[in-house]
Design a protein around this nucleic acid. Structure first.
Lengths: 227, 227
DNA sequence: TGCCCTGTTTGATTTCGATCAACTCCAAAA
DNA sequence: TTTTGGAGTTGATCGAAATCAAACAGGGCA
């Protein structure tokens, strides 16, 4: 793992456009950015482990991060995949300062790190910062609840269909996009074994979905909606 | 549904001890309490429905509330059960003002209602209020993530065992407690059909758990931990 | 060009929990 | 006391996805 002390210009741009900081007036955002450190990780690097003391929370600058629970018997369950502009582990600011989950890079990743103590201090001085943090927490909370509901209500092909639809532009009748990460990562995100994801894609052929490597083509978006 | 305009003394006590308000200095908490309204609901009353405009979020004073997603084909998936002192739907302060889920009372319930606009205003003036809200969001986020992980890693009997353990005092070798709500509600909370919960309880007999109505007795807490 | 290595797919089997149906239990009402 | 209805249990069956195993594809590299 290599740490970079200063943000470069491009990274600063990404960060200012992230869900968290974009909520803030630019002067405030810049003040926070001044205290950010950058960490660059290799693929498959651990970022933190459950049980560890939590000194930072993070916004992804480039690449994808996998957050998961490790069970006693060594199995892993993903609870979230985070990409550029997304913030994760902000929860540690309020849960006793210990990570409850593990995080690992899926590929080469650069992260912006916020010091928990520093941000607490900022938040106690400027209400806007607290509000931006709340917006981020709230976003992640909604996603988590959505995930529980999706897991409990839908079959594997339906969940895959949902995921595909989230990546289609509204009001398009057909669409095509490229998966931003490995299929095995998507499988984990959807709570599936890789084999089940593969079979789900096959099942969606009948709904006009074709897959070539990471390219996904949707013939009839509306047909997919009521799969 | 009957609305009560003023909190009585006992309700005020409960509210001040809730997870949300107990984070605040008492002067601040009292100021917020002044703006709270109380709603009392019959059993099975809808509190709000997904898609509705969200004017309030809530803290439970007495009783239990079920929050769930309603699917297109009419099935329901619980995403949380909230009891006295717990706050739900705070997410609506930041997600566009629309409820993403349904909420319904499980029994007769009294709720404290916070007006979203009012609370936003308070939070923008006093950083401590934002921080208390964040603590509440963070608590609910952790619970949701925990739930995803639990669903994905554990079988029905294991999830039931986890639930039971959460209701046992630490360091006790044996324990006994009373379910605070119907078994069918617990089943939903754990993402199970009622039949599956029943069978899970039977499976736990071999681990020293016996169930009589709502009374649950655990012979050997440690045995249950590595079930 | 051929050979790994890794990620993905396909096939066969098993397991878990949903579903449907019948039955028990109990408490409240008549 | 009997009746009735809801909650919970038990049994039988079915289906979805995990698991295990093997084949397959494609990119990087010798």
């Amino acid at each position: 793992m290599i740490k970079v002390l200063k943000l470069n210009v491009r990274e600063k741009e990404i960060l200012l456009r992230s869900y968290f900081l974009s909520e803030l007036p630019s002067a405030t955002a810049l003040k926070i950015v001044d205290h950010v450190t950058v960490a660059s990780h290799e693929a498959r690097d651990p970022i933190f482990k459950q049980g560890e003391k939590a000194d930072y929370f993070y916004t992804v600058l480039t690449g994808f991060v996998r957050v998961f629970r490790l069970s006693k018997d060594g199995r892993e369950a993903d609870i979230g995949i985070y990409g550029p502009g997304e913030t994760f582990a902000e929860g540690v600011m309020f849960n006793g300062g210990t990570h409850r989950f593990c995080a690992q890079t899926a590929e080469a990743v650069t992260l912006a790190r916020y010091e928990v103590d520093k941000l607490k201090q900022f938040a106690s001085q400027d209400p806007a910062i607290g509000i931006a943090l709340m917006a981020s927490l709230s976003r992640n909370l909604d996603q988590a609840l959505e995930c529980v509901a999706d897991d409990r209500l839908h079959t594997a092909p339906q969940r895959v269909a949902n995921f595909i639809l989230q990546n289609c532009p509204e009001n398009a009748s057909s669409a095509r996009f490229r998966l931003p990460f490995q299929k095995s990562l998507l499988a984990g995100k959807l709570g599936l074994a890789p084999e089940a994801l593969s079979r789900a894609f096959s099942a969606l052929k009948s709904a006009g979905v074709s897959v070539h490597g990471r390219i996904i083509e949707i013939g009839d978006v509306n047909a997919l909606r009521n799969f």
